[in-house]
Design a protein around this nucleic acid. Structure first.
Lengths: 225, 225
DNA sequence: TTTTACTGTTACCATTCTGTGATAATTGTT
DNA sequence: AACAATTATCACAGAATGGTAACAGTAAAA
C-alpha cells in the first residue's frame, strides 16, 4: 500500500515516513502541495494521502479539491491539522470519506487510522458511518468515537475508549499492562500497572453480558479474541 | 552485548555510556549519524542502537533508514526523543521492533528498555506482527503470545510459554537446567533446578500426544529436535 | 459556585500460578 | 543384574496475579 505524505515540516514527514515504512507501507513524501501534485500527475498515485492542512502556498484543502476534480478519484485523505480554535471544529468531523487528525497526535493513532481507512477503502464500503472497528458484538466508530454493542450505544470515558480500541483493533494480540500504559499514557507514563486493571473492570461492567469479551491471561496481559 | 550510542550531546552520551557499562554492556559512542555510519561500515556493528532523533546533519531516522537499507539487518533501535509536540506522537509507540524513549528519561527506564529489547531480539523474535516460531507441530505466535499444536490452541502459563519459546526458537540446541533458569528467572534466579523439570512436565502433559517433542538427555538438559 | 464525571490509588478477596519435597520411573554404569 | 544418578510425576502450600469496591483528587460541566 502506497501512502503520500504532504507536510512542510521535514521532521514530521520523517517521523511519519519512518514509522509507516516500519509498519510495512510504501511511503512517498512531498514538502508542498505543488510538489505532491507534480508527483501525482506523473503517475505516482498513492492509495492514501496524509495531508497537512496548513501548507505554504496551496493549502491542503485546495490540493484535495484539485485532486478530486482532476482525477475524479476517491483516494482517501487523512488531513493533519494543528490544534487551534479554527480547526477544532473539524476534530471528529468527516465528510466524503476523508478524515481529520489534529496535532499533536500519537503514531499509534495515525497507524490505527491509516489501517482503518485503507481497509475500508479496499472493501469499498462508503464512509457515512466512519471507520468501524469490529470485535464480536462491539463496534467502534473511530471517527465519531462512539461504541455500540449489538447496535446499542455504549458510553465510555476517554481512557476506557482508548483501551478498548487498542484491544479491538488488534484482535487476538495480547498486550501487557506496560504495553498498554506505554501506548496510551503519553502525558504521565508513571501510573501503576494496577490502574489498567481498574479501567478494564470498568469497561467490562459496562459491557454487561459481554463482559468476557476482554480476556486476561495471568502473566501475559489482556486481549480481545 | 554491544551498544552504540549516537547523540550529539556529550553529557547525555556520558551518562548513558557510564551506566550501561556498569550494567555490563560494551558501549561505543558517536556524536553524529555520519560518524556512527563510518564505524558500522568498518565493521563495528552493535547489537543495539541508542539513537537520538534530533541529530545535527543526518537525523536519527535517516540513519536508521540507511542502516536498514545498507545492511538489511534487524538490529533493534531505541530512539531517544526530546519531549516536544512533534515527538510526543512517538511516546510509547513501537513499530518494526523499534522503540522510543523520550527525554528526560530515567536510567532505570533506559536499562529496562534495553534489557527487554535485547532479550526479545536474542530470542529471535522481532516485534512485527505475527512473528511465528515453528517447531514440528508446534507454532508460537510471539506477538499474540499464543501457541498452537497442529492448529489447535494450546493454553500455557507464562513460565511454560517462556520455556517452550526458548527451546523452540533454538531447535536442536540442548539447554541445561541452569541455562534455562539463568535465561528466564531474571528476577529471582535462586530457584531449584528441579523446578525446571516440573515446568517441562506440565508442558508435556499439555502437549498430549506430542509430549515427546521436548527431549531430555540425562546429564545434559532439554531440547526440541 | 456546586455538581458531575473521570482517573488513579488502595485494600481486600478470589483465582491462578509456581516452587518444593516426596516418591516413582527411567537411564547409565559397573 | 544391581546400583547410582538422573529424570518424571504428583500433591500441596505459598506466592503471584487478577477482580472489584470504595475513596480521593482533579477536571469539566452546570
Amino acid at each position: 500500500m502506497k501512502i503520500l505524505i504532504v507536510d512542510d515540516e521535514a521532521d514530521i514527514r520523517e517521523i511519519l515516513a519512518f514509522n509507516l515504512k516500519a509498519a510495512g507501507y510504501e511511503v512517498f513524501e512531498a514538502g508542498t502541495a505543488e510538489a505532491a501534485l507534480v508527483g501525482v500527475r506523473q503517475g505516482r498515485v498513492p492509495d492514501l494521502f496524509l495531508l497537512d492542512v496548513m501548507l505554504p502556498g496551496m493549502s491542503g484543502f485546495k490540493l484535495a479539491d484539485v485532486l478530486r476534480k482532476e482525477f475524479k478519484n476517491s483516494t482517501p485523505i487523512i488531513f493533519l491539522t494543528a490544534r487551534n480554535a479554527e480547526n477544532d471544529m473539524l476534530t471528529g468531523f468527516s465528510a466524503g470519506g476523508d478524515d481529520y487528525i489534529s496535532k499533536p497526535f500519537s503514531m499509534y493513532e495515525v497507524l490505527a487510522r491509516v489501517k482503518a481507512v485503507l481497509r475500508r477503502s479496499s472493501q469499498g464500503s462508503a464512509g457515512q458511518s466512519g471507520e468501524l472497528v469490529q470485535a464480536g458484538p462491539v463496534s467502534i466508530d473511530t471517527v465519531a468515537k462512539k461504541v455500540t454493542v449489538n447496535s446499542v450505544p455504549l458510553v465510555l470515558s476517554k481512557k476506557e475508549y482508548d483501551i478498548l480500541l487498542m484491544l479491538a483493533s488488534n484482535r487476538g494480540r495480547t498486550f501487557s499492562r506496560s504495553e498498554i500504559i506505554g501506548a496510551l499514557w503519553k502525558e504521565a507514563p508513571c501510573v501503576l500497572e494496577r490502574t489498567v486493571d481498574v479501567h478494564i473492570a470498568r469497561i467490562r461492567s459496562k459491557l454487561g453480558e459481554f463482559h468476557d469479551l476482554i480476556v486476561n491471561r495471568a502473566g501475559f496481559g489482556y486481549s480481545i479474541q
